[in-house]
Design a protein around this nucleic acid. Structure first.
Lengths: 330, 330
DNA sequence: GAAACGTGGGAGAGCGCTCTCCCGAACCTT
DNA sequence: AAGGTTCGGGAGAGCGCTCTCCCACGTTTC
């Protein structure tokens, strides 16, 4: 029997007589034969693999990533989409500049067919590097520079506006906000959206303290806010973890939530439900966004580009709308 | 110029005249040439890649993994070791039975040179599957069955004993423990170690409630413990997150920590320092253990086995001793 | 000055697959 | 019954590297 026939059976291409098919399968099972991935991708120019890249500069890498439920949600969203298509998901991390270079090299050498990138900093150079290296790439969050690649994004401005309008509607007139770190991609939108919505209603001064997305930083931010602006009656935090921290601090200080101060979070992560009180928050459908991101990439990969008309790129993207979820903290 | 010369320059093997070397480098830079990884591994039978595998059965996969600082510490420990040797780390997850099968297939086809496995359940079949598939494997935690492969482990019994002895030494005579989920690999050792140490001192009845490694489950466990055994004066939790939850609950109920009830955690993760009060805890050097795990695998991979004397396996392993860290909660 | 040696570079054989031909046999069609 | 049309299977050419020969040239040695 020829290699060709075996190949046909294994890959399920063309017709092979059932008898022969069975014979091949038996032989495969008997000998424990495994096709060599390297040889296969050498000719197919495919690895059947997609990289999920987590990019964060600076230290305390793991602490940043593995304490926030956010990335877990991304993983949860991406996995089913890839599994369903029998694409092997591999997670890559770029925790330093060297790591980033190594990673780009790995991908351009064909380590994976494409990359799903979750940048944790707005000025992350990785997306641009990948696009320059001709790696099919889809981002979580709009690319900040002119990098032309696919992405999914949330209308963060609208989300922040939702929070502001809700606080306004429930009678809060002395708002403050615990903003994201300046480096965060979503920081400006969530901050400005909140401020502008209040400005439009005549409230021009909104105290801002930056947090670092953690529960702890939320506590500290709340403490500072309260010290510098004792009259505050409504707080919008740029994620649920910080909102949770704010609530903890307020209650410890004997300040009623939502009685005296209302708190709105962002994301609607598990933390929002787990917090005491349960958080009113702006829902970001992370899992759905991540799934969409994976689908976008898969389409680009299988997009049947007939070799010739490979446009420089035609970045597809998808936008999501936030929704306000009202619970106990407002 | 021949391909061979280029290959020699790129891989830095043998002597190549400096002039020629420069010429090659220039050409590479100019044309943006990138060697094809697939072709290379086809002949070298190496990918230059090591997989860090996270295996967890059951649902809420991401929630389990990305909310506990534990896995982040493993990553932090593994990365430097691999980076230093320019081995590309790829993280793989086995979140379902299918995923597990797919993953094993991927690795035996040569998707990576070896696997570092962190099983979250004691009865995880993955390690055995990998060993059966001839994938060089090193585990975090002693293999539960007769799987012959390398591993690193902590003396969990000794750790639990440390906690017990400390509680005893500080005058606690009515201990209780918030144990790990039955499925956790470390559950029996940490539980039995604690009980036996007290039994040796004449305290035979130690109430046990199972938690799920989360802050929340720690709170609930503490609540139940207190309700069913109001006299408790010392609690040992199987990880810091649960200890933190226990402290939170106790303080909310107006019970002084460590005044009325002392609390000891396990791991010495960031959560221990962040908790209020700061946790007395049994230190598990996760980063060092993870680094050792990576080194063990690298040695097995580069271990110069001269092809012929490939023993069935000679599993190397390394054991670590826990240390008690006394802070404010006792 | 000839033989021995070392050193840099080319030729070419694979690595293990996939995939395009191509050919023989069986099945229709008129 | 002769031609055309499937259909199943084999042969063999690569995919892009690495690595072992092997050869040509310069350098040393007696």
């Amino acid at each position: 029997m020829s290699r060709a026939t075996v190949s046909r059976v294994v890959n399920g291409v063309r017709n092979v007589a059932p008898g022969i098919q069975q014979a091949v399968r038996d032989a495969v099972a008997r000998t424990g034969y495994t096709p060599n991935q390297a040889a296969r991708s050498l000719v197919t120019r495919r690895t059947g693999t997609v990289a999920l890249v987590l990019s964060a500069t600076g230290r305390a890498f793991a602490a940043r990533v593995f304490s926030d439920p956010f990335f877990g949600r991304v993983v949860d969203g991406v996995l089913p989409v890839l599994r369903e298509r029998t694409i092997q998901p591999v997670m890559l991390v770029a925790e330093s500049e060297e790591a980033r270079a190594q990673l780009v090299e790995y991908l351009r050498q064909g380590g994976a067919d494409g990359a799903l990138v979750v940048p944790l900093d707005a000025d992350d150079p990785l997306p641009a590097m990948l696009v320059a290296a001709d790696v099919p790439t889809v981002l979580f969050g709009r690319p900040h520079d002119s990098t032309r690649c696919g992405f999914v994004d949330l209308d963060n401005t609208a989300g922040a506006r939702l929070a502001a309008e809700h606080l306004w509607a429930t009678g809060r007139r002395r708002p403050a906000t615990i903003a994201a770190p300046v480096s965060a991609p979503t920081a400006p939108e969530r901050l400005d959206g909140f401020r502008e919505a209040f400005a439009a209603r005549g409230v021009t001064s909104v105290p801002v303290v930056r947090g670092r997305f953690s529960v702890d930083s939320g506590r500290r931010a709340m403490a500072r806010l309260l010290k510098e602006h004792p009259g505050i009656d409504g707080v919008f935090a740029a994620n649920d973890l910080m909102a949770q921290g704010a609530c903890q601090y307020l209650r410890e200080e004997g300040i009623a939530v939502p009685g005296s101060v209302a708190v709105v979070g962002f994301d609607d992560s598990v933390a929002a439900r787990r917090a005491q009180p349960q958080l009113t928050t702006v829902r970001q459908p992370v899992e759905r966004m991540a799934a969409a991101m994976a689908r976008l990439l898969v389409e680009e990969l299988t997009g049947g580009r007939p070799e010739s008309d490979r446009q420089p790129h035609e970045p597809a993207s998808k936008l999501f709308e936030p929704v306000l979820v009202v619970r106990e903290s407002t």
